[in-house]
């Protein structure tokens, strides 16, 4: 198959690339565009390391064809948004990461959660975050940090 020209908008920036249409977005972002913050963990929608937002929708980029992303806005860990910045601050305050590898995906999933629920309960957090594996086991801190991010946000209102 011949590669096709594809325009992708990532974090507000347009990228013109050539890729196979059936390539998962993850590998286009990582290997062709060179943004390596989005991680590979399983390749089969099991771990959430590859999480990105596509038009605001939480998506596992390992299982999402690049051709489906054409014309949409892709948001990765290299991007910035209000909620992501509150989360980053809270992650920092809570000294959350261990190896850090899963944390891009965790932060994107948490951003998506705060985008849809302003003040999530523990149960909301469990539901939203259980698609993201952390082999180092930082769940306690992630949960606390999400609550903290909400608190930080409320302080600034």
């Amino acid at each position: 198959m011949l590669p096709v020209n594809i325009n992708l908008s990532i974090n507000g920036k347009l990228h013109q690339i050539e890729a196979q249409e059936n390539m998962p977005l993850l590998w286009v972002i990582r290997d062709i565009i060179g943004l390596t913050g989005t991680k590979f963990g399983c390749g089969v929608s099991q771990c959430g390391a590859c999480s990105v937002l596509i038009d605001g929708q939480l998506t596992k980029s390992c299982s999402y064809l690049v051709s489906s992303a054409i014309g949409k806005e892709i948001f990765t860990i290299e991007g910035t948004s209000k909620n992501l910045e509150f989360l980053r601050k809270a992650w920092n305050d809570g000294n959350v990461p261990q190896c850090g590898y899963c944390q891009s995906g965790q932060l994107i999933a948490a951003t998506s959660l705060l985008n849809s629920i302003e003040n999530p309960t523990d149960k909301d957090i469990d539901d939203a975050m259980s698609n993201n594996i952390c082999r180092c086991g930082t769940y306690t801190r992630i949960k606390k940090a999400i609550h903290k991010a909400v608190a930080l946000k409320n302080e600034t209102l």
Binding site: I77, E78, N95, P97, Q103
Partner: peptide, 9 residues
């Protein structure tokens, strides 16, 4: 390494 970890860097 917190900054790098939380920015995918």
């Amino acid at each position: 390494d917190l900054h790098d970890f939380t920015h995918g860097k």
